[in-house]
Design a protein around this nucleic acid. Structure first.
Length: 256
DNA sequence: TGTCATGTAAACAATT
DNA sequence: CAATTGTTTACATGAC
């Protein structure tokens, strides 16, 4: 019955997963073919996969601390969020970040859920924490109408990429079940990430003019996108936050 | 033009 | 009883 689910059908419902091995085998191809070939899309995807997940691991529980100064990206400043004194010095770049993050993320809800789950130490999260992760990393939703939560639940239910986990296997208490990514579909989500992420870049988040400063933890992640539209995701300091940008040249100079 | 993926809204039941 | 969670249906929109 649930096999009839739709959602991400194009990438998840495929019987044969031609790129599954590619994406699931660590260090299959990837890395740093920065010289730009047609293969870059795939290699960069692998790179994305590796780094994104690695980054998730790196940024796991410790990076989840939500006490760090929240950047008021939602357009409205939150007065109670103190000025992030050191992290982003330039109000100019702050404004850019705000612009980028108040716009809708170029990720589908499926991918947002995927990223949230993958980042969790146990690779499984209750709905509420998925909400929390999305809110934390994409503050756009904090001002968005609450319908997005419905969409998240809708996705979890509808998408066969996500599976419910018995709560006893994970979290001891709380409402509802834990949700995890079906490993069988993980490569497809990666593929979807690639497909969705790169073409849909219209929110600009120019890399900061200044390097991330020596104090920045080596946790920055950026993605050199495929051929034309280089895109990147980065972590800003201790706050895992995703930015996306488009770069018209073949190589984005992500210096941070 | 049709199909598909996705987003959104809504209704409803189950659970806490 | 209210809030949350999970499921389902329906519709709109954009891309292909």
């Amino acid at each position: 019955m649930q096999e009839e689910r739709t959602g991400l059908r194009g990438v998840c419902g495929v019987g044969t997963l031609p790129e599954a091995e590619c994406a699931s085998s660590p260090l299959a191809t990837c890395v740093d073919r920065a010289s730009g070939t047609e293969d870059e899309e795939l290699t960069n995807l692998n790179w994305l996969h590796e780094n994104l997940l690695q980054n998730f691991t790196l940024g796991g529980p410790e990076a989840q601390t939500s006490g760090s100064p929240l950047f008021d990206i939602e357009g409205d400043y939150k007065p109670n969020q103190g000025p992030s004194s050191s992290a982003s010095s330039s109000s100019q770049s702050r404004g850019r970040d705000r612009d980028s993050l108040k716009s809708k993320p170029p990720f589908s809800f499926s991918l947002l859920i995927y990223m949230a789950i993958e980042q969790s130490p146990s690779k499984s999260l209750p709905v509420k924490e998925i909400y929390g992760w999305i809110l934390e990393h994409f503050p756009y939703f904090s001002n968005a109408p609450t319908g997005w939560k419905n969409s998240v639940r809708h996705n979890l239910s509808l998408n066969k990429c996500f599976r419910k986990v018995d709560r006893s296997l994970g979290k001891a208490n709380g409402k509802g079940s834990l949700w995890c990514v079906d490993p069988e579909y993980r490569p497809n989500l990666i593929q979807a990430l690639k497909k969705q992420h790169f073409p849909v870049v219209h929110a600009f988040c120019t890399p900061p003019a200044s390097p991330p400063s020596a104090s920045s933890p080596p946790r920055h992640l950026f993605l050199q996108g495929c051929s034309f539209k280089a895109s990147w995701i980065c972590n800003l300091d201790d706050k895992q936050r995703f930015c996306w940008c488009s770069v018209s040249s073949t190589q984005s100079q992500c210096n941070h």
